[in-house]
């Protein structure tokens, strides 16, 4: 970084000195090294390009032929009739579960760790614990959901074993899964709040909570929002824990259709469920080409459209705030 500032201010001088010292030879090995590094980066991005291209070419025909009917339809064993509306409903409620459960608890935990907690062993242990939770494989969270939200808590509802595998249990499981992500990103945003803001507020007699509410949270809000968006995108794309909790494979009789009244009907929460990523994985494993390639790619397009939109929003938001604050 510093090298670039030097070269930009005195570029011409540096260039001529360099040439004189080297006898005007080109630094071949240096150039090759740089080219190899750039190739690594571009290859990673090329993969992204090929991936998007494949998904679009495989999935687009489904939309051009069936359009809205594919989005609005129900699961079916016939590839030409199968639709993903039940998956959209499931993913909608999972995102809602993350917003309602994980965001308040995660933001609260981060505020406690950064603003309230004494610097002692318990705090250090909680912080270590949060970092490790972020690294626990998602499929293990599925087991947690199965053991706690399905087996233990589902027991109160008096339903049979299979009927306890509800959308509510799935949403709660994914809320737990993204909790450490919310805590870590929020803590980072809070750490970036300048000390002077807090000291100013304490100086005029504010209590700790008043400092947090009037100074820390407003300043950290864009960073916190970024973290929340990233965790929603993560939850919507996550399939493994849902499979373990017991997403339906194959047929689901109720809840089809994309009318607003159907999507937001909380009655879905106590029923069995599918979500977009579990539909994708189920279809991809079927032997028929239409399911395996066309339909699964079309379902991926619907899911990617949402996930990439939310992620891009988060990245743009963060970069804009960073740029504004660095000047």
């Amino acid at each position: 970084m510093a090298l670039t500032t030097i070269s930009s201010s005195t570029g011409a001088v540096r260039g001529s000195v360099e040439r004189a010292l080297r006898g005007a030879r080109v630094d071949v090995r240096g150039r090759l090294f740089e080219a190899a590094l750039l190739a690594c980066l571009l290859l990673s991005m090329l993969v992204l390009g090929v991936l998007l291209h494949t998904v679009v070419t495989d999935g687009m025909p489904v939309y051009t032929e069936r359009g809205w009917e594919f989005l609005d339809g129900a699961l079916s064993s016939s590839a030409s009739r199968a639709g993903i509306s039940q998956g959209i409903v499931g993913s909608f409620w999972i995102a809602a579960g993350v917003v309602v459960l994980a965001v308040p608890v995660g933001v609260g935990a981060a505020i406690y760790l950064e603003e309230y907690a004494p610097r002692n062993r318990l705090t250090a242990f909680i912080e270590l614990n949060v970092r490790n939770l972020a690294g626990v494989p998602s499929v293990v969270y599925g087991l947690l959901g199965l053991a706690i939200f399905v087996e233990a808590l589902g027991g109160f509802s008096g339903q049979s074993d299979v009927d306890r595998r509800t959308l509510a249990a799935a949403a709660a499981t994914l809320a737990v899964l993204v909790l450490p992500i919310v805590v870590i990103t929020t803590a980072e945003a809070i750490r970036a709040v300048p000390r002077s803001l807090r000291e100013g507020a304490y100086g005029v007699g504010a209590t700790r909570w008043e400092v947090v509410r009037t100074q820390v949270l407003p300043y950290a809000a864009p960073g916190i929002l970024t973290g929340c968006l990233l965790s929603i995108a993560r939850a919507v794309g996550e399939a493994a824990p849902l499979i373990v909790v017991g997403a339906v494979t194959g047929f689901l009789s109720r809840g089809a259709g994309l009318s607003v009244s159907n999507v937001v009907d909380p009655g879905h929460l106590t029923e069995r469920f599918v979500a977009l990523p579990t539909i994708v994985s189920h279809w991809a494993k079927l032997p028929e080409e239409e399911f395996k390639v066309a339909n699964s790619s079309a379902a991926i397009l619907a899911m990617l459209a949402f996930v990439l939109l939310v992620n891009t929003l988060a990245i743009v938001l963060r970069n804009r705030v960073e740029r504004k604050r660095s000047t």
């Binding site: 980066l41 990673s44 991005m45 993969v47 992204l48 991936l51 998904v55 990233l230 995108a233 993560r234 919507v236 794309g237 996550e238 399939a239 493994a240 990523p277 994708v280 994985s281 991809a284 699964s296 790619s297 991926i300 899911m303 990617l304 996930v307 990439l308 992620n311 891009t312 990245i315």
Partner: peptide, 14 residues
Amino acid sequence: LEVLAGIPSVVLGV
């Protein structure tokens, strides 16, 4: 590169 990080793993699977 961050967009690549956000791609769900089912998509990579397919």
